[in-house]
């Protein structure tokens, strides 16, 4: 069947089997391999993208189900050559080691900040609890998201 998904603002059309998982569509068709997979049971969160703005696990959505919808991936965070504050925060606060969970963590974090620009540490921990990081112990991820929130507040104040 033919599926058209708008990924990071670009329409992508491809003939797929109905059973194809969205994560595979994203990785194969536009070749956006920043979205990873790490389990088969919707537990690890490496595949988190935003579907019509909401953070979802793209291993548990069929590409067919996303037909006609909008997807944002980690590659869509940077705009006009400017990193998203979440990306900057992950770098500033050493919130990644191997980098494998990082795209999913950043997408969940971005979704959180869009809804709640000033989250508590507990709210940040809850928001990223659908992802597993084996490297960082989460502490610096929490710090990175807090950093991004503060940075965005500063920018807003300056504007």
């Amino acid at each position: 069947m033919q599926v058209t998904i708008t990924i990071n603002g670009e329409e992508v059309t491809r003939d797929v089997e109905p059973r194809m998982l969205l994560v595979h569509f994203i990785r194969e068709t536009p070749g956006l391999t920043g979205t990873h997979w790490g389990c088969d049971t919707s537990n690890c969160g490496a595949c988190i993208v935003r579907l019509d703005g909401q953070a979802v696990k793209s291993c548990t959505v069929l590409a067919a189900m996303a037909d006609g919808h909008e997807v944002t991936t980690v590659e869509g965070l940077e705009r006009d050559g400017r990193l998203d504050p979440v990306q900057e925060g992950f770098h500033e606060k050493h919130a990644l080691h191997c980098g494998f969970c990082t795209p999913g963590m950043m997408m969940a974090s971005r979704a959180l900040l869009d809804e709640n620009p000033d989250p508590t540490d507990e709210e940040i921990r809850t928001a990223i609890s659908g992802g597993i990081c084996r490297c960082t112990g989460y502490q610096n991820i929490v710090a990175a998201v807090r950093w991004a929130a503060e940075r965005e507040a500063e920018v807003k104040q300056e504007a």
């Binding site: 920043g34 980690v74 770098h91 980098g99 494998f100 990082t102 795209p103």
Partner: peptide, 11 residues
């Protein structure tokens, strides 16, 4: 970090 935060690692 530069590549990882952009989803440009090569796993």
């Amino acid at each position: 970090d530069a590549r990882f935060i952009r989803g440009q690692g090569t796993y």
